[in-house]
Write a protein that binds this DNA or RNA. Sequence first.
DNA 1: TATTGTTATACTCTATAACTATA
DNA 2: TATAGTTATAGAGTATAACAATA
Lengths: 164, 164
Amino acid sequence: MAGQAQYEELARQLSAVGAVKRDMGRILPPDCPAGSAAVLTLLGRHGDMRMSKLAELLSVDMSVTSRHVAHVADRGWIERFPDPADRRSRILRLTPTGMEQLDELSRRTSHLLAERLSDWTDDEVGQLIRLMTRLRASFGDCRSAPVRIPAPVVEETTRTPAST
Amino acid sequence: MAGQAQYEELARQLSAVGAVKRDMGRILPPDCPAGSAAVLTLLGRHGDMRMSKLAELLSVDMSVTSRHVAHVADRGWIERFPDPADRRSRILRLTPTGMEQLDELSRRTSHLLAERLSDWTDDEVGQLIRLMTRLRASFGDCRSAPVRIPAPVVEETTRTPAST
DNA sequence: TATTGTTATACTCTATAACTATA
DNA sequence: TATAGTTATAGAGTATAACAATA
């Protein structure tokens, strides 16, 4: 259990990590924005899957997933074919071209990270991965359980203990 | 110095942390999207500053900063007045109403994080903050030094060592 | 009737470029 | 001429709601 100051600082760092993500996005190949890259990466890691499963892994609405998937399918990086067990579903699979594109993505992102994190030890990178993975789990596990927003404090001495 | 597999995993986790940021965004007050919240937070932490300084802290183009600042100024959360030392510049300052809004933001984000991270120790949260801060520094310090994208490998045995 | 997936619409965030007003 | 900031425009990501096809 941590304190309020720590939570505020963590919120700040979560907001600021967007800059790192934007830097990563700038080195992506043409026609392959971050959304497409995420689709290819997850299919490469988890293998063939249905739209709904991919949407869950992406943690976005299926309508968003559908758009990303259409984009990579238009470029021939994945194939969509009907699920024999449920004809409403479509199974997604990387094509050979998609695998090449995925290799290119891995190459570029690894190169950028290797350059930026050249003074990080293997262990430090591992710790960051571990903590970020756990952070995601701490949020994801209670998905569909929207938080209650507590009633505002009555604003008496919250910020300026003896100035007003 | 870490390995390629670690870099790929880190890239994946960086992509996935967007889900956490979206969850945080969902509990923001009306009329205060994430961009506005970032402006208020940075002004609260660092005190009065010029547009250019804020843009640097946000790691975003000044045109973007200008829009966010206009939004919070329209709502009376900050004031903008000319810099006596350089009349091209404008100094930004939180208003009392802005400070109340900032308190409300802190309250909501801390509440959400306290709920989601209830099983994290103080030390674990501190480690994550420390590593994310360092990650941002590792990227930010070489800003304006765009990476060279290395030439693609000739694609012979990159992915399927003995299948084609 | 419920579920899988698609499409239309709207909103937020970002970057580039053109513009102004000062330096 | 160069810099601080604004505005217009365009592109990417996301969510909600309406819809089609199937379970």
